[in-house]
Design a protein around this nucleic acid. Structure first.
Length: 466
RNA sequence: GUGGUUUUAGCUCAGUUGGUUAGAGCGCCUGAUUGUGGUUCAGGAGGUCGUGGGUUCGAGCCCCAUAUUCCACCCCA
């Protein structure tokens, strides 16, 4: 077999021990907050049937789905199908089902919708679930963008209450604060407001074009948006009507007041405003002087988000401390399960982008120092006799809940010590003939360099103290 | 999918107009120290220069293709 240079696919990464400790710190923190808010964990397969996923993320999204090649001889399959079906012409569309019927999941929300429909008789509504698993997108990698990355989702289905949305704000706030972020913004909008705006300017059919354009305000400015809108079928008169809405400023209350007058003839638009107001009211009643939010909560009507299944509230979270795309997003989707045959079930959810949060914490140096330490104590290995003597000692350590390892060969002490040093192990126990004779073992604190002789019991107590 | 960029030792990077034997720092190994890491000192190992073609007397350097890194656009966590 030829020597193949080892590599991983574009946009994927290995995670080494140090990175895994940090990643688990993020996952554990987010999961603990999910549990605290009453969410239960599930997992779903990494692959779904292709038709479960297609058509849920828009045309752009569909292109980014990783498809899995069918096993077996697909060429033979194709030829036999051509014989059976008269006049079959092969093209990308007719060939696809022969080549692929499974795909890697693109997000956690659609698989969850599928899960809910399949397990509707087992779950009781409202159902609050969280899920922390990788998702895959056939994107071109760049800053904060990977082809394999983890999402941490919390969704609730079967509850219309806007209390859920309000709790998402608190959930984001608590989790990100726990991770050490100081300055972040939870942006909130409502699809109904966007619909109302499209309605007012008389172009309800262009709502998608309108939202993707105004979503770019931060990036390309108002003039850039005007250009995009003109390209996408809007007139100067439309833009004149849109302008005050896009450039809305002031406090959330002011924005809502201004929007109300703009949208006064749109039933849908006013409904959206009312929803936002209800959410804000819930949030203020869920917080108090002593438990104020760290997050800035901001109504941002330019927030659109590409996913076309959102019908109500839309969320997006950004950190203001480093340049990074959104680190979380979510919203309300009224009929996601409808596509799988279960009508009239509403859902709402949010997602944390764990890999981006990792990059942010790394850049801001926010990982706690304790994430570096793994093994607590290394027992040295002088020779065969000492090794035999050390085995029950090792066992005692572990029985006492101390992460311990015995150096597996009687290598030079120098090597054993530098192993401990490299691995940042804070304690080393030395067992030689003196120690075996006296029963007092030598404990070395690697951080100070101090060492003392102790009975095993004392030694364990000492290590437990840290 | 479009445009640009990167790739040289385990890691981070030098390498002049194309010219003998491709360098540094860190890390690794050995010793000073046969029961002691992190500091110091002495020595050592380690490279098909991303890959495949081409131009040339001669290519790490020039040309083409391809992979990869990072970045921007589209879009998105």
């Amino acid at each position: 077999m030829a020597n193949i240079k080892p590599s991983v696919p574009k946009g994927t990464r290995d995670f080494s021990p140090v990175e895994m400790v940090k990643r688990n710190y993020i996952f554990d923190t987010i999961k603990s907050v999910f549990r605290k808010f009453g969410y239960q964990e599930i997992q779903t397969p990494c692959m779904e049937n292709l038709d479960t996923l297609t058509g849920k993320y828009g045309d752009e999204g569909d292109k980014l789905i990783f498809k899995i090649l069918n096993s077996g001889d697909f060429w033979k399959e194709a030829e036999s199908k051509k014989e059976k079906v008269a006049g079959l012409e092969f093209n990308s569309k007719t060939l696809l089902p022969i080549l692929s019927e499974k795909a890697l999941r693109y997000d956690l929300t659609v698989p969850f919708a599928r899960y809910v429909v399949m397990h509707q008789n087992e779950i009781s509504l409202p159902f609050r679930r969280f899920q922390v698993q990788p998702v895959w997108r056939a994107d071109r990698p760049q800053k904060g963008r990977y082809r394999e990355f983890y999402q941490c989702d919390a969704d609730v289905v079967g509850s219309e209450s806007l209390l859920n949305e309000a709790e998402f704000v608190l959930l984001y706030d608590e989790a990100l604060s726990k991770l050490g972020l100081k300055d972040f913004t939870i942006k909130i909008n409502n699809r109904k407001i966007l619909s109302g705006i499209a309605e007012i300017i008389g172009k309800p059919e262009l709502i998608v074009e309108m939202t993707v354009a105004i979503d770019k305000l931060d990036k390309i400015g108002f003039d850039g948006i005007v250009k995009e809108l003109l390209d996408r079928g809007f007139t100067d008169a439309d833009i004149e009507k849109l302008k005050p809405v896009i450039l809305l400023e002031g406090s959330n209350e002011q924005k809502l007041a201004d929007l109300k007058s703009v949208l006064e003839t749109s039933v849908t638009g006013l409904k959206g405003i009312e929803e936002i107001e209800t959410i804000f009211k819930y949030v203020s009643n869920l917080t108090s002087q002593s438990s104020a939010l760290n997050a800035r909560v901001e109504l941002d009507i330019t927030l659109a988000r590409g996913l076309n299944y959102y019908t109500g509230a839309i969320f997006e979270v950004k950190t203001n401390e480093v340049a990074m795309g959104s680190i979380g997003g979510g919203g309300r989707y009224d009929d996601l399960t409808g596509m799988f045959g279960l009508k009239g079930l509403t859902g709402a959810g949010i997602s944390f982008g764990a890999d981006r949060i990792y990059d942010v914490l790394e850049e801001l140096n926010l990982f706690p120092a304790s994430t570096e330490e793994t093994t607590k104590v290394l027992i040295s290995n002088f020779d065969a006799d000492a090794e035999l003597y050390a085995l029950p000692v090792l066992q005692q350590m572990r029985t006492n809940g101390i992460a311990a390892e015995l150096y597996p060969s009687s290598a030079k002490l120098k090597k054993q010590m530098s192993y401990a040093d490299n691995k940042k192990i804070p304690f080393v126990v030395l067992i030689g003939s003196d120690e075996m004779n006296s029963g007092e073992l030598t404990l070395k604190d690697m951080r100070s360099g101090d060492q003392q002789k102790l009975q095993l019991g004392e030694l364990i107590e000492r290590i437990k103290q840290g």
